[in-house]
């Protein structure tokens, strides 16, 4: 199998398989969660908290100032790599073309050197989070194989994309194939690791916001 075969496989059957596993897994996970149900709260709620679940879905993205000061590394690197990852994902032209070909939606791209710089910053932030995860006692204790796996499959697409663009290590064709395959690995692993948080955090925040709001607290 040569590089072009690999590229064609990754753009063809590979992508279909990866998207299939991703969607299968995520739908399954949502059923797993909601099938457990929740008892209706019989305690009369305080008034004025309606819609708080929806509100908390968004407000929880902004930390309390005092808490920010207590965990600056996690907050800073966390913001940088999340935002960076999504800028690279959503504003590099080839990616927009991919989204357009699947969904018909498109928007203007950022100049490639800008995306390139953001990719570097994202990679650095991801490396810092990894080092922090290994060095910091709390994160080291909490970390499981799944955490390192999730980190790896997040890091690889950015890295291989960067390397492909800069013709590092391998020829572009092979690197592009590896880049697409790394994204497919991310999709395959996604539903079965903590990466599900991208979807489920909105469920969690809703429950949290709703729970607190019934008690009259904006969480």
């Amino acid at each position: 199998m040569n590089a072009m075969d690999l590229l064609l496989w990754s753009r063809g059957p590979g992508l279909g398989i990866a998207i299939g596993i991703f969607l299968f897994g995520m739908v399954l996970r949502l059923f797993e969660i909601y099938s457990l149900g929740r008892k209706r709260d019989l305690a009369p709620a305080r008034t004025g908290g309606e819609g708080s679940g929806w509100r908390t879905m968004f407000t929880r993205s902004v930390p309390d100032r005092a808490q920010f000061k207590r965990s600056p590394v996690v907050f800073t690197t966390g913001y940088i790599f999340h935002i960076g990852f999504f800028i690279v994902l959503l504003f590099l032209l080839p990616h927009i073309e991919l989204i357009r070909s699947i969904s018909g939606l498109s928007w203007p791209a950022l100049p490639t050197p800008v995306v390139d710089l953001i990719a570097v910053i994202t990679l650095i932030a991801l490396i810092v989070t990894l080092i922090y995860r290994i060095m910091d006692p709390v994160r080291r204790l909490l970390s499981t194989f799944g955490d390192y796996l999730a980190w790896t499959v997040t890091f690889l697409p950015v890295l291989t994309g960067y390397m492909a663009y800069h013709h590092l290590l391998f020829d572009y064709t092979l690197m592009l194939a590896l880049h697409i395959l790394s994204v497919e690995l991310l999709l395959v692993v996604f539903p079965f690791t903590k990466l599900t948080h991208m979807v489920t955090l909105f469920i969690s925040r809703w429950y949290n916001g709703e729970w607190f709001a019934r008690k009259g607290v904006a969480s």
């Binding site: 753009r11 063809g12 992508l15 299939g20 596993i21 969607l23 739908v27 059923f31 073309e97 699947i102």
Partner: peptide, 26 residues
């Protein structure tokens, strides 16, 4: 950077199978 073949079929099938498996595990 676009898929060679359409993925919508595979996607729809995956969602259907996922839902079936989801109902079972549910």
């Amino acid at each position: 950077s676009t898929p060679i073949s359409p993925v919508t079929g595979a996607a729809a099938a995956a969602v259907a199978i996922g839902a079936a498996a989801g109902v079972a595990i549910g």
